[in-house]
Design a binder for these strands. Structure first.
Lengths: 187, 187
DNA sequence: CGCAGCGGAGTGAACGCTCACTCTAAGATA
DNA sequence: TATCTTAGAGTGAGCGTTCACTCCGCTGCG
C-alpha cells in the first residue's frame, strides 16, 4: 500500500478514535507501519498533514453531493436523493464525518473559520432556484434554508453514530420530508 | 474577582479564541492574572478544569431551556419561545456555544461520548407529549424529532457567528415555524 | 556499486505539574 | 491599641516527560 495513503488513513483513524490531543506523529507512524521520518517526506508538518486530509475529505464529500443531483426527476425525489446520499455517506463513513466536523475546531484561526460550510452550496442553490415553477420556497435567506437542511442531517448522523437510531429507507424518507416541509410553502 | 472564576473565564476565552491545542496552563494563568500553581489549588488537572467548565456551561444551558417552558400558553407560542431563548443564548454567548459544541471532540473517550445531547431532553419530550390534543406530532422517534429542532438551531447560530445572518424577530419566528412544520402533521 | 527511499534514535523546545517559599490578614496576647 | 503568631492562599522557577521534527545510517533495487 502507498505510504502516503497509509499515513492519511492512520491520521483519520487516530484523530477520530483516540482524539486530536493524543494523536502524536510517532503514533501515526506506528499505526501506518511507517518510520517517523517518512511522514516528513510526504508532508511539510503535522499541521499540513491534518490540513491535507481535511481538503481531501472535503473534496470527496463535494463529489457525492454534486453527483446526487439529476434535474430530470421530480424536485422532491431529487431532494430526497441528495438527503439520502448525504445521510448514507455520513453514517457509513463515521470517521470521515467526524474529522470534517471537528477539524475546524482544532486551531481556530478566527475570524476566518476554515470555510463557510462543508458542503458545496452552488449546486444546492441552483437546484432550489431552478425549480421555482414546481414548488415555492419559503422567503428565507438561502443560508437559513441551507441550515434547515444541513443541521438536521448532522444531528441525525450523530444519532446513528451513537447507536440511538438505525437508518431505514422509511426513516430517510421521513427525514427528507421533514426537511422539505420546513423550507417549502404548502398549498 | 474570584480567582477560580478568573481561571474558568480565561479558559473559556482562550480555548475558543486561540483553539484547544494552543491553550496551555501557563497561558491560562497569564490570562487570568493568576500564578500557575493557583490553577492547581482549584482544579485537579488541566483535563479536570476543562471538564468542570463544560459541566458548568451545560447546567447554565439546561436552566435556560427549562425556564423557557410555560405550559399555560399556546403550544406553538411556547415552542417559539424555547427556540427564541436558545437562539439568543447561542448567538449572544458565542464562546459558551463554541465551547459546548467542541468540548466533546477534544479527547473522544469512545464509545461513551460525553453525553447524548447538550440539551435536557425531558422537558422537551414532556412538552411534545403533553400537548397531544392540540397538535399531531409526526410518527418519528423522539430523538429524530429532537434532531430536527436542535440541528437547525446549531446551524443558524453558526451563521450568526460567521456574520452571515443577523437575527431579527421576524427571522426567529420564521425559523421556529420552519422547525414546527418539520415535526408537526398539517391538517 | 551507487543511490533513492526509508526508519527510528536523537534533539531541543514546550508542556503539565510540583513544591518550597512568600505574603496577607485574622486571632491571640498583653 | 500595638505587636506577635500562624494558617493557608498564592506563587513561579524548576522538574520530568512528551512532543514535533531532524538527520544519518541502513536497505534493496537496477
Amino acid at each position: 500500500m502507498d505510504k502516503k495513503e497509509s499515513i492519511l488513513e492512520a491520521t483519520l483513524k487516530l484523530t477520530t478514535e483516540i482524539g486530536w490531543v493524543d494523536t502524536s506523529t510517532s503514533l501515526i507512524a506506528k499505526e501506518a507501519n511507517v518510520g517517523m521520518g517518512t511522514i516528513y517526506r510526504y508532508f511539510e508538518s503535522k499541521e499540513q498533514l491534518f490540513y491535507d486530509l481535511f481538503i481531501r475529505l472535503k473534496q470527496k464529500l463535494n463529489e457525492i453531493v454534486i453527483s446526487s443531483f439529476s434535474f430530470e426527476k421530480d424536485p422532491f425525489d431529487n431532494f430526497e436523493n441528495v438527503v439520502r446520499n448525504l445521510l448514507l455517506y455520513y453514517t457509513e463513513n463515521m470517521r470521515e464525518f467526524r474529522y470534517l466536523e471537528t477539524y475546524s475546531d482544532l486551531t481556530s484561526e478566527i475570524p476566518e473559520r476554515i470555510d463557510d460550510t462543508l458542503l458545496p452550496l452552488e449546486p444546492i442553490t441552483n437546484f432550489l432556484n431552478g425549480w421555482n415553477n414546481s414548488f415555492q420556497l419559503k422567503p428565507l435567506p438561502i443560508d437559513v434554508i441551507f441550515g434547515l437542511i444541513y443541521g438536521p442531517l448532522v444531528a441525525i448522523a450523530n444519532l446513528v453514530h451513537m447507536k440511538k437510531l438505525v437508518l431505514t429507507d422509511q426513516i430517510i424518507s421521513d427525514i427528507s420530508e421533514a426537511c422539505w416541509d420546513s423550507i417549502i410553502v404548502k398549498n
